[in-house]
Amino acid sequence: MIPFIVTALAAFAIYLILTAGSGTVGLWSPFELGAGAVVSLLTAAISRNYFCGSRDYRMANPLRWLYCAVYIFVPFFLEMARANLDVAYRVITGRIRPGIVRVSPDLATDFGVLLLANSITLTPGTLTVGIDEATNDLYVHMIHIGLGKEKKEIFESGDLFTFFPLADWIRRIAE
């Protein structure tokens, strides 16, 4: 029952975001509210086991989502801008030294690993290639490894980023 309610509420929230500004009840028209309720109930009936597969409801806390939004707009966006300037520089000069390294981020939850893998993919010259599911270690393709650094067996997650320790932010969001 709990998966059904959580999925229905999430689907209804997304429907409300997509139809904002359509009418007079608040921002929505009565027809849109009714249709949204029906559609989100149907969605919940079909997909509740995919949406809440792990039966882990800590991400239902709105504070975590607020923290997630702050994370995306401040540290993540700055890292991403720096990454893009870096990759643009490498596109123009062609100065690359690629390789795949192993990174041990020490995260426990699936959502945390997903967030970190996506953050790594969108930031400084790094791209997640694979995951060791037993230890949650990530295999990361780097476009430019500093001279001599490739001898290190396992990288810390802090070695990948320049300005902020993104893994610590993600630990606070997802765990």
Binding site: I96, R97, P98, G99, I100, V101, R102, V129, G130, D132, Y139, H141, I145, E150
Partner: peptide, 13 residues
């Protein structure tokens, strides 16, 4: 395999 590459830990594992 990543063709110019200084290291490839993924294939080693």
């Amino acid at each position: 395999v990543p063709s110019p590459a200084v290291i490839d830990r993924y294939s080693e594992g």
